[in-house]
Amino acid sequence: SDEEKKVRDQAKRLGVNTEQLLKWARRQGDEDLVRIVERLLRS
């Protein structure tokens, strides 16, 4: 999905993997991002 591509691009920009991005999203309190990243991790 578009959202998932955006998440992957953001992880690349930050230089982190998906698990690290999830931690980062939780720290930001970004519920939408957390949900998308969790979906990516499960897929």
Rank of each mutant, 00 (worst) to 15 (best):
S1N: 09
S1Q: 09
S1M: 09
S1P: 09
S1E: 10
S1Y: 10
S1F: 11
D2T: 09
D2G: 08
D2E: 11
E3S: 12
E3G: 09
E3A: 13
E3R: 13
E3Y: 12
E4S: 08
E4W: 14
E4Y: 14
E4A: 09
K5F: 07
K5R: 08
K5S: 07
K6G: 04
K6W: 14
K6L: 12
K6N: 05
K6S: 07
K6T: 06
V7E: 03
V7W: 11
V7N: 04
V7D: 04
R8S: 05
R8D: 04
R8C: 15
D9H: 07
D9S: 07
D9F: 09
D9T: 08
D9P: 06
D9M: 12
Q10L: 15
Q10V: 14
Q10F: 14
Q10N: 05
A11K: 07
A11T: 04
A11Y: 09
A11E: 05
K12R: 10
K12N: 06
R13Y: 06
R13V: 06
R13M: 07
R13F: 08
L14C: 15
L14E: 02
L14A: 04
L14T: 03
L14P: 03
G15P: 03
G15H: 08
G15M: 06
G15F: 13
G15E: 03
G15I: 07
V16A: 04
V16H: 09
V16I: 13
V16C: 15
N17H: 06
N17F: 14
N17M: 12
N17W: 15
N17V: 13
N17K: 07
T18G: 07
T18Q: 06
T18K: 10
T18M: 15
T18W: 15
E19W: 14
E19A: 10
E19T: 09
E19V: 11
E19I: 12
E19Q: 10
E19N: 08
E19R: 12
Q20R: 07
Q20A: 12
Q20L: 09
Q20D: 08
Q20K: 09
L21C: 13
L21R: 00
L21Y: 01
L22K: 01
L22Q: 01
L22M: 03
L22A: 01
L22N: 00
L22S: 00
K23R: 13
K23F: 11
K23Y: 13
K23N: 12
K23E: 15
W24K: 02
W24L: 04
W24A: 01
W24V: 02
W24D: 01
W24S: 01
A25P: 01
A25R: 01
A25W: 12
A25Y: 06
A25M: 09
A25Q: 02
R26W: 06
R26A: 03
R26I: 11
R27T: 13
R27N: 14
R27E: 15
R27G: 13
R27K: 13
R27Q: 15
R27V: 11
Q28I: 14
Q28A: 07
Q28K: 07
Q28L: 11
Q28N: 08
G29Q: 06
G29E: 02
G29L: 14
G29M: 11
G29N: 05
D30E: 05
D30G: 13
D30W: 15
D30A: 14
D30H: 12
D30N: 12
E31R: 09
E31K: 12
E31S: 11
D32G: 06
D32W: 14
D32S: 09
D32F: 14
D32A: 12
D32C: 15
D32R: 14
L33K: 00
L33W: 03
L33M: 03
L33N: 00
V34P: 00
V34E: 02
R35V: 04
R35I: 04
R35W: 09
R35N: 04
I36D: 01
I36G: 01
I36P: 00
V37W: 02
V37S: 00
V37L: 15
V37E: 00
E38G: 02
E38A: 04
E38N: 03
E38P: 00
R39S: 04
R39W: 13
R39Y: 10
L40A: 02
L40V: 05
L40F: 12
L40E: 00
L40C: 11
L41H: 01
L41N: 01
L41W: 02
L41G: 01
L41I: 08
R42S: 08
R42C: 14
R42Q: 08
R42G: 05
R42I: 04
R42V: 05
S43F: 13
S43M: 14
S43P: 07
